[in-house]
Design a protein around this nucleic acid. Structure first.
Length: 480
DNA sequence: ATGTAGGATC
């Protein structure tokens, strides 16, 4: 077109920027600058969105700034960019700017800003506030807003509100149903997840691959191995949905978590893809739990070759060697880690108290109320022991004496966060904790006891799922 | 004729 001397206009750029597979936004950007289309809101929005899809957010923000008259579509596109990278503060800032300039948010705006509130570090209250705003704007019933709300509430640990939003929906589409199934699945509310699925069947609705990811995950979290396999078969044979890598990952997780590692390997060997890092990670984690050192070694080495800079892999592998007393192997992995300058990700826990988020590292003493936190932990320690608790030091994988191990356990980040929650909130108030790693077995035992001793409902979200602790028991039934 | 949205396993 340009060779024949036809000048592109705004439509040309918008169309080419949304073409699939995506073209390089940098290249088109150059043409846009040359022909002076940077200020156009439609071209600018398409361009910034192209940068967002590539994850280049600062470039997207620069493009956004240059748009002359930013309409709600341009604002929403920028907001969606921040939401996509999980930058809650950036998204909230954009929302405030657009409303203060008198621009009226639409359903896309709310859907994105609520989506931005699903980030682990975002305060639960934040999402709730945008829910309220969407009600005021009469946009809360839009499909994309409702499903964003269901996902936000369930990811923030509030499955009751998620299901409330879902129940009140008069109109639903596939995404609405999938959001609810996946929410229940992540909370380990297997029965409810399957009930929602059954309701879809009763109404003769269409499913897609994501529906079954939710359903199989629900089975995984309850150890329903046969049922999980049945749903996979139904998906393939009755609904002719072609399983993706993600489905095979779920199946490998289903079997390996239940300790059926041979069956898991069978799937890996027979699936039509090379196993992804996710698959091997699942296997490795299960090998650590079920103490299968040979397979763990295989999975660990595969993983290290696939992702040589992922610290979590080295940690899992070295922990497995430590847990089985293979100290030489453990030293080898640690050395590899040092040689490659791979640093372990620190374990963090967050707790929200009065709309503020507090974060804790293991052994953290930086909090202003540190003294109170540690004396609460002391007090709890005595009461826990009276209640029959014995620390399980096998979760401490340093080669040190038992007394030190107990001290390390007692200062895990989730315990500090809970102790702070106990002293900083009124008696009986529920606590919500978020953790960036998996909760350890000993902490799991302790939190169950604390929920009983202190009469508190405690919800812990780790990297895998939610644990609802209540009256000495956990919703996961000790299977996670 | 063009630009913005929600649901996925580790």
């Amino acid at each position: 077109m340009t060779r024949e001397g036809v000048r592109p206009n705004g439509f040309t750029y918008s169309i080419i920027l949304t073409a699939q597979p995506a073209v390089s936004p940098f290249q088109v950007h150059a043409h846009i600058i040359k022909t002076n289309y940077e200020k156009s809101f439609s071209v600018g929005t398409a361009l910034l969105n192209a940068y967002v899809k590539k994850g280049i957010l600062d470039e997207a923000a620069k493009v956004f700034e240059l748009i002359d008259e930013k309409d709600i579509v341009a604002w929403s596109a920028m907001l969606a960019g921040y939401a996509q990278i999980g930058d809650t503060e950036g998204a909230v800032k954009i929302y405030r700017q657009l409303t203060s300039e008198g621009v009226k948010p639409n359903e896309f705006t709310f859907s994105s800003v609520i989506n931005a509130c699903t980030a682990p570090s975002a305060a639960v209250e934040q999402g709730k506030q945008f829910h309220a705003c969407s009600i005021k704007a009469k946009l809360n019933n839009a499909l994309c807003v409702s499903s964003a709300l269901v996902t936000m509430y369930s990811k923030k640990g509030n499955i009751e509100s998620a299901s409330e939003v879902f129940k009140r929906q008069r109109k639903r589409d596939l995404v609405s149903w999938n959001s609810m199934i996946c929410g229940y699945a992540q909370h380990g509310h297997t029965k409810k997840a399957l009930e929602v699925f059954k309701e879809m069947r009763r109404q003769d609705l269409e499913f897609d691959g994501i529906t079954f990811i939710g359903v199989i995950t629900a089975c995984t979290h309850a150890g329903l191995v046969d049922e999980g396999q049945q749903y996979f078969d139904i998906m393939v044979n009755e609904h002719h949905i072609y399983p993706t890598m993600e489905h095979y990952s779920c199946m490998v997780d289903l079997y390996s978590r239940a300790g059926m590692l041979e069956k898991a390997m069978d799937i890996i060997n027979r699936m039509p893809f090379a196993a992804s890092a996710t698959v091997w990670r699942t296997v490795l984690a299960a090998c650590r739990v079920h103490r299968n050192i040979d397979l763990g070694k295989l999975a660990g080495e595969k993983l290290i070759s696939l992702q040589p800079h992922d610290s979590a892999i080295y940690v899992l592998l070295s922990n497995m060697y430590a847990a089985t007393g293979h100290w030489q192997e453990r030293a080898r992995v640690r050395k590899l880690m040092n040689d490659r300058k791979v640093k372990k990700e620190a374990g963090y826990s967050w707790i929200e108290v009065k709309n503020k988020t507090y974060s804790f590292l293991a052994g953290d003493i930086s909090h202003p109320q540190s003294n109170q936190i540690y004396s609460k932990l002391e007090e709890l320690s005595t009461r826990l022991k009276d209640a029959g608790y014995k620390p399980d030091t096998s979760y401490v994988l340093q080669d040190i004496d038992d007394e030190h191990k107990e001290a390390i356990l007692s200062q895990h980040s989730e315990r500090l966060a809970i102790a702070f929650g106990l002293v900083a909130t009124p008696a009986g108030a529920p606590l919500q904790i978020v953790k960036n790693l998996r909760v350890c077995g000993d902490c799991h035992t302790v939190i169950k006891l604390i929920s009983k001793l202190e009469r508190r409902d405690i919800v812990v979200r780790d990297t895998n799922r939610f644990h609802h602790f209540k009256e000495g028991l956990c919703s996961c039934g000790d299977y996670w």
